[in-house]
Design a protein around this nucleic acid. Sequence first.
DNA 1: AATATAATAGAATATTTATTCCGCAATGTA
DNA 2: TACATTGCGGAATAAATATTCTATTATATT
Lengths: 190, 190
Amino acid sequence: MKLKDPDKIHIIYTATLKLVKNNGLSALNMAAIGKETKLGMGTMYGYFKSKEELINSLFKRLKGLNTNRIYSVIKPNAPFKLSMKDLFDNYIKNRVDYFEEHFFVEQCSNSHFLDSESKKLDDAAFVGVFELLDKGKKELLVKNIDNTIITAHMMGSANELVTMCMKHNIKINKAFLNQAFSLCWDSIKR
Amino acid sequence: MKLKDPDKIHIIYTATLKLVKNNGLSALNMAAIGKETKLGMGTMYGYFKSKEELINSLFKRLKGLNTNRIYSVIKPNAPFKLSMKDLFDNYIKNRVDYFEEHFFVEQCSNSHFLDSESKKLDDAAFVGVFELLDKGKKELLVKNIDNTIITAHMMGSANELVTMCMKHNIKINKAFLNQAFSLCWDSIKR
DNA sequence: AATATAATAGAATATTTATTCCGCAATGTA
DNA sequence: TACATTGCGGAATAAATATTCTATTATATT
């Protein structure tokens, strides 16, 4: 007998990300994935029982990966401002390096494709920032403003900066990161 | 003879916004619009020659409306910080009051539905902020950081704040606006 | 009120897209 | 090498959706 090719799922994922980046989630269809991967319909449906399952499966995988990647950078006993800067830089670097993935996740978040399990995952991403902010507040380094507001402010800023850079083809370097972080730091510092 | 009902376009627009808010752009279909408006297919196709034209027509209308609404609040000779605060408050109020409209615009921006004309419109929205920032820099009130970065920072922050409020059902009041603005102001002030 | 014209509803059709099905190919096992 | 089993491609089918068509209705004009 023949065994399933362990690479095919990855191949399908990669093609899906590329297609969504180029045409948006709303234009994604199985025929296009088949063309891009050079796989037959039957093959794809051997790995995913529907288009919806494919989308949700990829979404969940990416959510997990990205959450790990982002927080892994915080060093346990580093001073607060440094942790903040590491997190900020890493977050932006991540958004750029894995642009396609983030774009896909964003498109899914506002679509009708996500099942309830995926939607849950979609929420629990900010926890690590909250913890860090609490530490900063304890040390009287951070304004006494609700974590939700501060987090929205910083994440929103970071996301929009990346979107803007991708749009205008701006290369992100140290100087850029320092300027961008200085805006965020000055906004939250006590 | 009978004349076209001048309200129908508006009725179709309203239903479209509602449906996209509830189910996302990718789930929008003409049958659903027909059901929501209680109009027949033929009627809708009397006003729009295709689904694509309907989407683009609504997109263009909203882009124009919103750009006007946002900048109309700036008083010509007000001091810089006050102009900034007015703009900020008004922008957020606008995002909340016209949530459906902004959501629709956002969904369209990342879809394959927009024609080239719509895409152009999609860009030219930040000009007013740039002008204001230049004024602030001339008065040495604003950090000497590229306008694009500052604007992305502030817009990103404002947008995410609104998204967050809508998600957690947080009511936006004066205190909230002041806190949110204080973050932004401290980040850009020299 | 009668007529002509255009709007309208919704069924019929065309188109697009998801999913299934089946013959063939590949490869583990004996 | 032969067999059994499962993977695979892609045509066939099903389902969803956009668009057109036509009989009917409404109303400006006379």
